[in-house]
Amino acid sequence: MKQSLYHLCRLSLAGVFIYAGYLKGSDPVAFAGQVAAYQILPYAFNYLVAATLPFVELLCGVLLLLNQRVRPALLVLFGLNTVFMLALFSLVLRGLEVDCGCFQPAGEEGTGTSPQMALLRDAGLMLAILAAWVLRQQHAKEPLDG
Protein backbone atom coordinates (compact mmCIF):
# COMPACT_ATOMS: atom_id res chain seq x y z
CA MET A 1 0.00 0.00 0.00
CA LYS A 2 2.67 2.41 1.15
CA GLN A 3 4.85 1.33 -1.70
CA SER A 4 2.21 1.96 -4.35
CA LEU A 5 1.46 5.36 -2.81
CA TYR A 6 5.17 6.16 -3.03
CA HIS A 7 5.36 5.15 -6.66
CA LEU A 8 2.19 7.10 -7.44
CA CYS A 9 3.66 10.28 -5.91
CA ARG A 10 7.01 9.69 -7.57
CA LEU A 11 5.57 9.10 -11.03
CA SER A 12 3.08 11.95 -10.93
CA LEU A 13 5.79 14.38 -9.80
CA ALA A 14 8.04 13.04 -12.56
CA GLY A 15 5.28 13.64 -15.12
CA VAL A 16 4.53 17.16 -13.94
CA PHE A 17 8.14 18.33 -13.84
CA ILE A 18 9.27 16.66 -17.06
CA TYR A 19 6.29 18.28 -18.80
CA ALA A 20 6.95 21.70 -17.22
CA GLY A 21 10.70 21.55 -17.84
CA TYR A 22 10.29 20.43 -21.43
CA LEU A 23 7.77 23.15 -22.34
CA LYS A 24 9.74 25.96 -20.76
CA GLY A 25 13.11 24.64 -21.87
CA SER A 26 12.00 24.58 -25.50
CA ASP A 27 11.15 28.31 -25.49
CA PRO A 28 13.51 30.01 -23.02
CA VAL A 29 12.97 33.53 -24.37
CA ALA A 30 9.20 33.35 -23.82
CA PHE A 31 9.75 31.85 -20.40
CA ALA A 32 12.15 34.70 -19.52
CA GLY A 33 9.33 37.10 -20.36
CA GLN A 34 7.09 35.37 -17.87
CA VAL A 35 9.76 35.43 -15.17
CA ALA A 36 10.19 39.15 -15.87
CA ALA A 37 6.44 39.65 -15.40
CA TYR A 38 6.90 38.72 -11.73
CA GLN A 39 9.01 41.92 -11.40
CA ILE A 40 11.28 40.34 -8.80
CA LEU A 41 14.65 39.91 -10.54
CA PRO A 42 16.79 42.48 -12.37
CA TYR A 43 16.56 42.33 -16.20
CA ALA A 44 19.35 39.94 -17.14
CA PHE A 45 18.75 37.53 -14.25
CA ASN A 46 15.35 36.66 -15.70
CA TYR A 47 17.23 35.13 -18.61
CA LEU A 48 19.61 33.31 -16.28
CA VAL A 49 16.65 31.71 -14.53
CA ALA A 50 14.98 30.93 -17.85
CA ALA A 51 18.14 29.27 -19.13
CA THR A 52 18.68 27.02 -16.10
CA LEU A 53 15.42 26.38 -14.23
CA PRO A 54 13.73 24.19 -16.88
CA PHE A 55 16.74 21.90 -16.96
CA VAL A 56 16.76 21.49 -13.19
CA GLU A 57 13.06 20.57 -13.34
CA LEU A 58 13.71 18.21 -16.23
CA LEU A 59 16.62 16.43 -14.53
CA CYS A 60 14.69 16.04 -11.26
CA GLY A 61 11.72 14.65 -13.20
CA VAL A 62 13.87 12.16 -15.07
CA LEU A 63 15.57 10.97 -11.86
CA LEU A 64 12.16 10.46 -10.22
CA LEU A 65 10.93 8.59 -13.28
CA LEU A 66 13.97 6.28 -13.21
CA ASN A 67 13.70 5.90 -9.41
CA GLN A 68 17.35 6.96 -9.12
CA ARG A 69 18.71 9.54 -6.64
CA VAL A 70 15.13 10.14 -5.56
CA ARG A 71 15.90 11.93 -2.30
CA PRO A 72 18.24 14.57 -3.78
CA ALA A 73 15.72 15.16 -6.56
CA LEU A 74 12.89 15.54 -4.05
CA LEU A 75 15.00 17.92 -1.97
CA VAL A 76 15.67 20.13 -5.00
CA LEU A 77 12.00 20.07 -5.99
CA PHE A 78 11.07 20.98 -2.43
CA GLY A 79 13.38 24.01 -2.66
CA LEU A 80 12.09 25.01 -6.10
CA ASN A 81 8.46 24.63 -5.07
CA THR A 82 9.08 26.75 -1.97
CA VAL A 83 10.54 29.50 -4.17
CA PHE A 84 7.61 29.19 -6.63
CA MET A 85 5.08 29.52 -3.82
CA LEU A 86 6.85 32.55 -2.31
CA ALA A 87 6.98 34.21 -5.74
CA LEU A 88 3.29 33.48 -6.39
CA PHE A 89 2.37 34.71 -2.93
CA SER A 90 4.22 37.96 -3.63
CA LEU A 91 2.12 38.33 -6.81
CA VAL A 92 -1.06 37.98 -4.76
CA LEU A 93 0.20 40.50 -2.19
CA ARG A 94 1.12 43.02 -4.90
CA GLY A 95 -2.15 42.40 -6.75
CA LEU A 96 -0.34 41.51 -10.00
CA GLU A 97 -2.51 39.42 -12.30
CA VAL A 98 0.15 37.82 -14.49
CA ASP A 99 0.20 34.35 -15.96
CA CYS A 100 2.07 32.08 -13.54
CA GLY A 101 4.38 30.77 -16.27
CA CYS A 102 4.21 27.33 -14.72
CA PHE A 103 3.85 25.36 -17.93
CA GLN A 104 3.03 26.97 -21.27
CA PRO A 105 5.46 29.79 -22.07
CA ALA A 106 3.83 31.16 -25.24
CA GLY A 107 0.25 30.86 -24.03
CA GLU A 108 -2.41 33.05 -25.59
CA GLU A 109 -3.52 35.98 -23.52
CA GLY A 110 -6.19 35.10 -21.02
CA THR A 111 -5.52 31.36 -21.03
CA GLY A 112 -2.97 31.44 -18.23
CA THR A 113 -3.35 30.28 -14.67
CA SER A 114 -4.08 32.91 -12.02
CA PRO A 115 -1.60 33.21 -9.12
CA GLN A 116 -4.21 31.90 -6.68
CA MET A 117 -4.87 28.75 -8.72
CA ALA A 118 -1.15 28.22 -9.20
CA LEU A 119 -0.59 28.51 -5.46
CA LEU A 120 -3.23 25.87 -4.84
CA ARG A 121 -1.63 23.59 -7.41
CA ASP A 122 1.82 24.09 -5.92
CA ALA A 123 0.43 23.26 -2.48
CA GLY A 124 -0.76 19.95 -3.95
CA LEU A 125 2.67 19.30 -5.48
CA MET A 126 4.24 20.12 -2.10
CA LEU A 127 2.09 17.45 -0.42
CA ALA A 128 3.17 14.90 -3.04
CA ILE A 129 6.85 15.85 -2.55
CA LEU A 130 6.61 15.53 1.25
CA ALA A 131 4.69 12.24 1.02
CA ALA A 132 7.22 10.78 -1.40
CA TRP A 133 10.05 11.97 0.84
CA VAL A 134 8.68 10.41 4.04
CA LEU A 135 7.75 7.15 2.31
CA ARG A 136 11.18 6.95 0.70
CA GLN A 137 12.91 7.57 4.04
CA GLN A 138 10.85 4.85 5.74
CA HIS A 139 11.63 2.55 2.87
CA ALA A 140 15.35 3.17 3.35
CA LYS A 141 15.09 2.33 7.05
CA GLU A 142 13.48 -1.04 6.30
CA PRO A 143 15.68 -2.38 3.52
CA LEU A 144 14.27 -5.93 3.87
CA ASP A 145 10.89 -4.62 2.78
CA GLY A 146 12.09 -4.81 -0.83
Binding site: G25, P28, V29, A32, Y43, A44, N46, Y47, L48, A50, A51, T52, L53, P54, F55, V56, L58, L59, C60, L63, R69, R71, P72, A73, L75, V76, G79
Partner: peptide, 28 residues
Protein backbone atom coordinates in the same frame (compact mmCIF):
# COMPACT_ATOMS: atom_id res chain seq x y z
CA UNK B 1 21.54 13.78 0.10
CA UNK B 2 22.12 17.53 0.36
CA UNK B 3 25.45 17.21 -1.44
CA UNK B 4 23.86 15.13 -4.19
CA UNK B 5 21.09 17.69 -4.52
CA UNK B 6 23.68 20.43 -4.96
CA UNK B 7 25.49 18.42 -7.64
CA UNK B 8 22.15 17.78 -9.36
CA UNK B 9 21.39 21.50 -9.51
CA UNK B 10 24.89 22.35 -10.75
CA UNK B 11 24.79 19.72 -13.49
CA UNK B 12 21.33 20.79 -14.72
CA UNK B 13 22.15 24.49 -14.50
CA UNK B 14 25.38 24.14 -16.47
CA UNK B 15 23.58 22.08 -19.11
CA UNK B 16 20.94 24.81 -19.38
CA UNK B 17 23.55 27.55 -19.46
CA UNK B 18 25.60 25.96 -22.19
CA UNK B 19 22.51 25.33 -24.32
CA UNK B 20 21.27 28.92 -23.88
CA UNK B 21 24.68 30.54 -23.71
CA UNK B 22 24.07 33.20 -26.37
CA UNK B 23 20.71 34.27 -24.92
CA UNK B 24 22.13 34.74 -21.42
CA UNK B 25 25.23 36.56 -22.69
CA UNK B 26 23.04 38.89 -24.74
CA UNK B 27 20.89 39.65 -21.71
CA UNK B 28 23.88 40.34 -19.46
Amino acid sequence: VMLEALVLVLVAASAGLSLNYSMVMKAF
